[in-house]
Design a protein around this nucleic acid. Structure first.
Lengths: 242, 242
DNA sequence: GAGGATAATTGCCGATCGGTCACTAACCTA
DNA sequence: TAGGTTAGTGACCGATCGGCAATTATCCTC
């Protein structure tokens, strides 16, 4: 038999579980309840593709889970179907509809609301799997990332820009300038995740402190910045399609 | 002959150049000066890997350039060697040593210096090839990205934090808190590039205007933010290793 | 314990991968 | 125009890819 290159370093402990105590033989086959096996596959796939990207091979994934690549294809007709399931798992299942409401609760200061939202949001997405899969998918040009960011734009960025306007006594649809300021705050947060999970750089232990600092800087600086940027330049802020 | 899947859509026009006028035959082989061919390969490789990632095949790359994959291997002994050359091309060749000095010129306001620097910096990196290759390399865990970001940290972020301190009348080595504020400004800028070149979202036409707004917001908000974040929390800003 | 249902595996397929080697053809010099 | 140098390519290799079909083994029921 050909020796196979292993991506992960350790043998999957799962695969050892049922092996006979007396010998270090090949691990016995595990016959699981299909729903249980499916979960195992999905979670294994999320971890695996987050690590090596979607070009990772099914055989390596299977070995890590403790099964064979044909078994994966019994549960998902094609690799593409499995990947689609991974998107679903990562994006849809981790989106909290109440986030938008969080930004609107007017019984708390905007500062508190923003801090509360970003603490919640980062708690959901600031992890190895989510961030890397999101970036891998973006590079691949998968349309679900654009739909997700459309959701961010309409449910987070625009409400945020609106709240900023309200606190300035303005109203109506946010201008490109105001949208851009809101994106900037969001970008700060996301870049933290990029630093940590894409480039493996040190990031602060306590995200709460960074969030608070970014939010305060945002509320403190945005009004002045928007006033100071000459009106003549604002036309340049209109989005440019590719 | 087996039909080959093409990544790009159009036939490379180069390959057609010398073909006989009378017939639509197979393009003649082009015998180039080696240095010229090498440049063609390198530039083709940068564009190709930026688009599809480093898992892209040599045959597809070769077809796009208008040659064969064997010819690539005559110029670079292995695929890995070619990729290494791509890193060199993208990172080292586009780094401007004078950037650090730009931040220190004290005859201009800090605002002007920051705007000037980021206009220069984004002019160098805000493009499809640089951004995507940088992200692909980061996900792959290539050490050159960490070296590059180390350069950013010591030559840009820390000087920036120092300038911020000077403008506040402080001096000495920047604290983690001050470093984090500086990273936040940088992150805003880089996230613009991510939005545009990874997620293909609309971004403002005139980067100058966004840069100015971010810089003003930075200078306007940072002092207040750093004062307001309770000292007790600052310990949490200490970087955490992975 | 026997037998059936089905989860899981072994074996295989064509296509494609990076890479080697021997051959072909373009250009320069005489 | 002949010959030599060398840029470029066709044919092929072992390994690996996603996926199909036939086989094996585990668990449940009687």
């Amino acid at each position: 038999m050909v020796k196979r290159k292993t991506i992960g370093s350790e043998m999957p402990e799962i695969a050892r579980m049922r092996q006979t105590a007396s010998s270090a033989r090949k691990p016995k086959r595990r016959r699981l309840d299909p729903t249980e096996r499916e979960r195992e596959i999905i979670e294994g796939a999320v971890a695996f593709f987050a690590e090596v990207g979607f070009d990772g091979g099914l055989r390596d994934l299977a070995q890590r889970i403790g099964t064979t690549h044909q078994n994966l294809l019994r549960y998902f007709p094609t690799k593409e179907a499995l990947i689609e399931r991974v998107y679903e798992e990562v994006y849809l299942n981790r989106w909290q509809p109440e986030w938008e409401a969080l930004l609107h609760k007017s019984d708390r200061s905007l500062e508190d609301r923003l801090v509360a939202f970003y603490e919640d949001y980062l708690a959901a997405i600031f992890n190895y799997e989510w961030v890397r899969i999101f970036v891998f998918a973006g590079l691949k040009g998968v349309d679900i990332t654009q739909r997700y960011l459309g959701l961010i734009q309409s449910n987070i960025i625009e409400p945020l820009a609106r709240e900023l306007m309200v606190s300035e006594g303005k109203e109506g649809k946010p201008s490109p300038l105001e949208m851009e300021v809101a994106w900037a705050l969001h970008g700060e947060m996301f870049y933290l995740a990029i630093r940590r999970w894409v480039y493996a750089l040190d990031t602060p232990q306590d995200l709460g402190a960074v969030i608070r600092m970014s939010v305060i800087r945002f509320l403190e600086g945005a009004p002045a910045a928007m006033k100071k940027v000459p009106a003549a330049e604002r036309r340049g802020l209109l989005p440019k399609a590719l």
